[in-house]
Amino acid sequence: MTSPAPVAIERLLLTDFRNYARLALVPAGRLVALVGNNGIGKTNVLEAISFLSAGRGLRRAALSEIARREGPGAWAVAATLNGPLGDVQIGTGYAGTESGRRVRIDGTEAKSSEALLEHVRVLWLVPAMDGLFTGPAGDRRRFLDRLTLSIDPSHGRRVSDFEKALSHRNRLLDTGGSAAWLDAVEQQLAGLGLAVAAARRETVSLLQGRINAQSGLGLPFPSANLSLEGEFEQAASGLAASDQEELLLRQLRDGRTRDRAAGRTLNGPHRTDLSVLHVAKAMPAGLASTGEQKALLIGLILAHADLTAAVSGLTPILLLDEVAAHLDPGRRAALFSRLVSLNCQVFMTGTDALLFADLPDGSEIVPLAER
Rank of each mutant, 00 (worst) to 15 (best):
M1Q: 15
T2L: 02
T2E: 15
I9D: 02
E10F: 05
R11N: 00
L14K: 01
N19P: 14
Y20N: 12
R22N: 06
L23N: 11
L25E: 04
P27C: 10
G29P: 10
R30G: 08
G39K: 08
T43A: 04
E47M: 05
L52M: 08
S53P: 01
A54Q: 06
R59I: 00
L63V: 02
S64I: 03
R68E: 08
R69D: 12
G71A: 13
P72M: 15
G73E: 14
A76H: 02
A76I: 07
V77E: 09
A78F: 03
A78N: 04
L85M: 05
D87S: 11
Y94S: 05
R102E: 15
R104F: 11
R104C: 13
T108S: 12
L116N: 01
L116I: 09
L117H: 05
E118M: 06
R121S: 09
R121H: 11
V122R: 07
V122S: 12
W124K: 11
W124T: 05
W124N: 05
P127M: 01
A128I: 07
M129E: 13
D130S: 12
L132M: 03
F133E: 00
F133Q: 02
R141T: 00
R141E: 01
R142S: 11
R146G: 05
L149V: 14
D161A: 13
F162Y: 12
E163V: 03
A165M: 06
L166D: 00
S167T: 14
N170W: 08
S178N: 08
S178I: 14
A179D: 15
A180K: 08
W181K: 12
W181F: 14
L182T: 07
A184R: 05
A184S: 13
Q188A: 10
A197V: 09
A199G: 10
R201M: 12
V204H: 06
N212E: 15
S215D: 06
S215A: 10
L217T: 13
G218S: 15
P222R: 08
P222K: 13
L226S: 05
L226W: 09
L226K: 13
G230A: 02
F232Y: 12
E233I: 09
A236M: 07
A241C: 07
S242H: 13
Q244D: 06
L249M: 04
G255V: 03
R260A: 05
G263K: 00
G263R: 12
T265N: 03
T265V: 06
R271L: 04
D273T: 00
L274K: 01
L274F: 12
V276I: 10
L277N: 03
L277Y: 03
V279S: 03
A280P: 00
K281Q: 11
M283G: 04
A285L: 10
A288R: 02
E292R: 07
A295K: 14
A295D: 08
L297G: 03
L302M: 05
A303R: 09
T308K: 07
T308F: 03
A310Y: 01
L314I: 07
V323R: 01
V323L: 00
H326M: 02
L327S: 04
G330E: 04
R332E: 00
A334K: 05
F336K: 10
S337K: 06
R338Y: 04
V340W: 00
V340N: 05
S341C: 01
N343P: 01
L354H: 15
P360M: 11
P360C: 06
D361Q: 14
I365M: 06
V366N: 04
P367M: 06
L368K: 14
E370R: 15
